[in-house]
Simulated assay, not measured.
Amino acid sequence: MGSRVEGNPLGNVTIVSITSYQYLMVIPGYEAGIDYVNARFPNLHFQHELIFQKSIYSCDVLADISVNFAAEFYYRRKWSASDLVIFSAPMCSGELLQLAPITGYWNVPVVSIVGTSPTISNRKKYPTALTTAPLNNSVLANFFKAFLSHFAWTTLCLICDNNDVVAYYKANCGIIKTELKRPKFDIQTVTVDSKKGRDLVDYDAALVTAGKSARVIIILARSNVTRQFMIFAHKKNMTQGDYVFFYVEPHTKSNLPEFPNLDWRTGDLDDEVARVALTLLIVITFDNGPSIDQLPSKTAAFIKNRTASQYNITVPPEQKV
């Protein structure tokens, strides 16, 4: 089961999305695509199954039980030889790596639009796993490996935000530590958590620890937290050229809610300090801003309306989809 039978027409295609609550807003995009395919290709029949629990907000938590959800769904159904099941969702790396072995055993595709891992391309180990993530964490880690090696910067400190609301930075922290290994690289990690608020982070303590361990500091946190780190670094005289600071911006000028643009000007009393401090920050980004929000206006409206009517989530007019 799970693959097309040679010579037979394709029957029902079931897209199964197991998702954490933080990514629920992505699901109407799947539904819009399925409606489009069903209307355009009457010989195909796509349907969508959504599995989520509101209490499971982050993909880190979902990773531990995603296989249970998948197995419960898969084994409770009776499938015909012409049916095709595809597990596809905005899975983080942990979820993808948890589901890949069992979906491979079933010979069923599993597709993530978020999760990445350097091992997921191993076709012997994960024969049916695929990621379409535009922000490839492995590519980012390999960039840092090559860039830092070029300048012989092998001792570095990662300031990692453990805020699971935006798991992107948490995932990048993990993969950079995995890819930049000893004995060539010596990596220290300082962990903060901005989940309770930007102003509750102990920036001074984090910078003191980072400054004692390395001259190269990579900040893996949202833009508002990064701005505060650079303000505090400037006040501690760490922006005089003795330290090199990096920041990862996943989208170029997208202003997505999860990834607001980094800007020195916010209207607070530290604007001038931020303006100076951010000139010492090296920003690493994927040049994918122009590819965002290229959907036809009718499709974008459908997604926003469905998000409101089916999931009771209002999409702000300025938000890209």
Score class of each variant (00 low, 15 high):
133 A>M: 05
188 Q>D: 13
180 L>Q: 00
314 T>H: 12
230 M>S: 08
200 L>A: 08
198 R>L: 12
190 V>H: 00
45 H>L: 09
315 V>W: 05
157 C>I: 03
277 A>F: 04
247 Y>D: 01
46 F>Y: 05
140 L>I: 03
102 I>T: 12
179 E>A: 12
7 G>D: 04
185 F>H: 00
41 F>K: 09
202 D>K: 08
254 S>G: 14
214 A>K: 00
64 D>H: 10
238 M>D: 14
178 T>S: 09
37 V>R: 06
197 G>S: 04
112 S>D: 02
10 L>K: 09
264 W>E: 10
87 F>T: 02
10 L>N: 03
214 A>Q: 01
177 K>T: 05
20 S>Y: 11
242 D>I: 15
128 T>Y: 11
177 K>Y: 03
59 C>R: 06
290 P>L: 13
233 A>F: 04
233 A>C: 14
157 C>N: 02
237 N>K: 15
77 R>Y: 10
89 A>V: 11
126 Y>F: 12
261 N>E: 13
231 I>K: 05
99 L>E: 01
119 T>R: 06
114 V>S: 05
300 A>W: 07
54 K>N: 11
170 K>S: 10
275 R>L: 15
72 E>M: 14
36 Y>L: 08
28 P>E: 00
235 K>R: 12
82 S>V: 13
23 Y>N: 11
21 Y>Q: 14
307 T>D: 03
138 S>V: 14
106 W>E: 02
254 S>D: 04
41 F>M: 04
44 L>S: 01
305 N>M: 09
63 A>H: 05
314 T>N: 07
282 I>M: 14
209 T>M: 11
96 L>H: 07
27 I>A: 10
251 H>W: 08
234 H>L: 09
16 V>W: 01
37 V>M: 09
12 N>Y: 11
301 A>P: 10
216 V>E: 00
286 F>N: 08
316 P>K: 06
8 N>P: 07
134 P>Y: 09
77 R>E: 12
191 T>G: 02
26 V>L: 13
173 C>V: 02
50 L>T: 05
308 A>K: 15
292 I>N: 11
218 I>P: 01
284 I>E: 00
295 L>K: 04
126 Y>W: 03
206 A>N: 00
98 Q>D: 06
269 L>F: 15
142 N>R: 14
143 F>H: 01
313 I>D: 08
179 E>T: 14
141 A>I: 02
151 F>W: 07
268 D>M: 14
235 K>Y: 11
